[in-house]
Write a protein that binds this DNA or RNA. Structure first.
Lengths: 170, 170
DNA sequence: AAATACAATGACATCCACTTTCATCAAAAA
DNA sequence: TTTTTGATGAAAGTGGATGTCATTGTATTT
């Protein structure tokens, strides 16, 4: 199954980000990446910069194929494998978070966006909506701890019909 | 990545099930399946019965490959495709629930076990532990509804280190 | 009970997301 | 500049899941 995924920002204020704030965030991420490259004695290549730019500019969870298409539209010389490798590298550098929604695609989102891990997945249009709810998370952590489990990552996934699809069909 | 997954039952009482109760549950599932087959004018074959037996006997979340190996050890004539098709059929019949933990495998568990969807996944040994916590779920449903989302399914996934791996390593 | 209809099987091929290979290329070091 | 060594990308390979199709098996009809 292939699904176009559009993510609507649900965190307060995120739609009000100014151009300046975005640019600043982007700069910070790029610095963090280059620091990582230097530390690991890896190389800062044209492709890695292009992919990181595209990834940061998108500013929403994405996957290889989407990013590849965006990049190909401007730079026809970038290959699949390079995009895959770059995304894994971003994850290793801690600037991206890798996750999955069970549809067979490996998704990536910018880390440090907050600790996002709550998804509403519309089974009709495939749209992925993110939300945060710390009270739920705290409760989950408490349950896990009571079972002797040390939690590293946490994901909530709700599948259903989003309000848009509901009004369109009914 | 390939991981052996063992599921420990965490619902109270489930370890105390008597042989008689298990047999009764199994009979009920098989009846439900055959009712489904009749309604849809599908056929009750030897293979489907064998696969359903193995699936119910396992009595924990599993995936095609594991079930295939169990079956092959006793009945060397069953093919991959048949197991895949049977599991999908079980899901369609409502006796199995299909889910994914992001490792590329499609997992199935007996439905009507309750509404299980909360998993603790150990990143060390790969063990999947299930738990239920209805207060968390109710909170999640409330959040989703407040966003105009009609929830059909819900999944919580915690990744971390289980108590056993923790004591073994440190 | 025999014939008929048609779903199911299983070996094999195919698909798709992802990874690896390897010859070539380019960035950082010497 | 030259050397070293990691990076690239086209193509091949993986592995889980699914499609194909001739054959087999089941259930229904006659």
């Amino acid at each position: 199954m292939k699904v176009d995924v559009i993510v609507f920002e649900c965190r307060e204020g995120s739609l009000l980000q100014t151009e300046a704030v975005v640019t600043q965030k982007k700069q910070k991420v790029k610095e963090q990446f280059h620091l990582f490259l230097t530390k690991k004695r890896l190389k800062a290549t044209l492709q890695r910069n292009l992919i990181l730019d595209a990834f940061v500019d998108l500013d929403r969870p994405t996957h290889m194929d989407e990013l590849y298409l965006v990049l190909r539209s401007k730079h026809s010389h970038i290959g699949h494998a390079t995009v895959y490798r770059a995304l894994r590298l971003f994850a290793a550098a801690g600037i991206a978070r890798e996750f999955s929604l069970g549809d067979g695609l490996t998704r990536y989102e910018l880390a440090g966006h907050g600790k996002r891990h709550d998804y509403l997945v519309c089974s009709d249009c495939g749209t992925v909506t993110e939300f945060d709810n710390s009270s739920i998370e705290q409760r989950q952590l408490a349950v896990a701890r009571s079972m002797g489990f040390t939690v590293e990552a946490l994901k909530i996934e709700l599948r259903g019909v989003c309000s848009r699809c509901l009004t369109q069909s009914g």
